[in-house]
Write a protein that binds this DNA or RNA. Structure first.
Lengths: 256, 256
DNA sequence: GATTTCCATTCGGTAATCACGAATATTGGA
DNA sequence: TCCAATATTCGTGATTACCGAATGGAAATC
């Protein structure tokens, strides 16, 4: 008989192994007993998982605490550098952070969500919880909307179906037709705004990055506090800078 | 009965899941059938693993090929940034690369091996296969020897027991007593040399980095081609620069 | 320094689930 | 349209993952 949290055709123990690693990250290290409590698993069961992951280097034991091991680095780094396009985008992210003094990032779409591949901090950049590798909704971010605007409509509907349009903040777009109208406008003007739709007090501008065959491969964005992201900077300077940067990047990609 | 590649008290399927991800990285993407062949597993079996990992975002499907997904990034980044010490070392790595024009890196010890946590490339830096997260022997690298020199002797013997002293290149130290003699010298002079002991044609200098309680937490190193790493630069300039940098870093760490 | 307490770790039996080959579905090309 | 190559699902038997209980170890308390 199939257990209830077993998904058809998937391996429960594999899923659980990753959930354990993720949970250890969230808790920033835990002991076997504490984690067994937290995850509602017998200590002995958990021990087997921890022993396996520890032996492989995906977890490490520091005294009685388990922590995330550096073995994940190799796979993580590979995933963000395996395409030349991504590596080139990384340079542009640095450039943008330096020129704007704000925070900039390169985001790609994976399974209907946005993923921060690269981030860089300018001199006045604000710190938010946007760690590399973190996932976000596409409809509530500037980079995300830039991507959505250049995906086939059918795919966009699929994503909405799967992920919904939750109100991440009171400003988030939650209506499907409103979103499609905005995507249309983004296509026309070439860039997307995020006005506190994902994080209160944070504005951002995003531009799509197209690959060899004109398909979107990701988006660049710059974000900063509301009080600096306004007026001519927000309406003209930053959009121009972003569009120019994306354009250079796309040219480099086209002639790879 | 226990299968032969089952390790006592460990989960075979968990181990296999990670081996699959690692293999996909090595092959830079594969189809189910090809990977089933490669790993000698039934296609149907493999499919269950791939479906699980795909659903979680640790792998992604690009057409009929599976690739490493970006979900690994979050755990990988966490593992290298969870200690303030590591983040401060990252800055020094950048600084060293810029000042020397060569390649620099910060390495820690994990389970008896060295792990590249951060790397940076100066203008003339040579490209070698030293990806972030990659593991190396401690006895054949400058950073590794710097670490060994400041670990308790019992731990060093343990590591040698477990990992051996293989001749990575003809120059590698393969004799235990010779290694201990060199470690003694490294303690005296404060830094370690690697003269083509890990990669032919590559020289390096490493210095240990000590934590709050004077225990080694890792090592900084700079490496370059044999023809540039010689004379006064190799004997005086670089050691001084590295010692100074490590010293600053240790001071910052001490007053955390 | 003995004792207690709190951990991690190991053990053995059983129910669950993983692994496989075969059957089916899907996709792309001829 | 058919064929070939691939992914995916299905059904079954054997393996192994799971749990509770017992053991072992280390630190804290008296």
């Amino acid at each position: 008989m199939q257990g209830e949290n077993t998904r058809r055709g998937q391996l429960k123990s594999v899923r659980r192994a990753f959930e354990i690693a993720e949970r250890i990250r969230e808790l920033e290290g835990v002991s076997v007993s504490a984690l067994a409590d937290d995850m509602n698993v017998a200590k002995s069961t958990l021990h087997a998982y921890l022993a396996t992951l520890n032996e492989m280097g995906y977890l490490i034991k520091e005294g009685d605490e388990y922590q995330v091991g550096t073995r994940f680095l190799l796979l993580g780094e590979y995933s963000r550098t395996r395409k030349e396009e991504y590596r080139m985008a990384a340079e542009k992210v640095e450039e943008l952070a330096e020129k704007t003094d704000e925070r900039s990032q390169f985001v790609i779409e994976e399974r209907g969500r946005g993923v921060f591949l690269y981030r860089a901090f300018g001199n006045h950049a604000v710190e938010t919880g946007s760690e590399t590798g973190k996932r976000m909704f596409l409809h509530s971010t500037a980079a995300g909307k830039s991507i959505l605007a250049h995906l086939p409509e059918s795919r966009v509907r699929e994503i909405i179906e799967e992920r919904g349009l939750p109100a991440v903040t009171p400003n988030s777009i939650t209506d499907e037709e409103e979103l499609f109208a905005e995507l249309e406008q983004i296509r026309e003007q070439g860039y997307a705004y995020n006005e506190a739709e994902n994080i209160e007090g944070l504005h951002a501008i995003g531009v799509p990055v197209r690959g060899k065959n004109k398909e979107v491969i990701g988006a660049l964005s710059v974000s900063g506090p509301t009080h600096r992201m306004k007026g001519n900077v927000f309406v003209k300077e930053l959009p121009d800078l972003l569009l120019g940067t994306a354009n250079e990047l796309e040219l480099n990609i086209a002639y790879l």
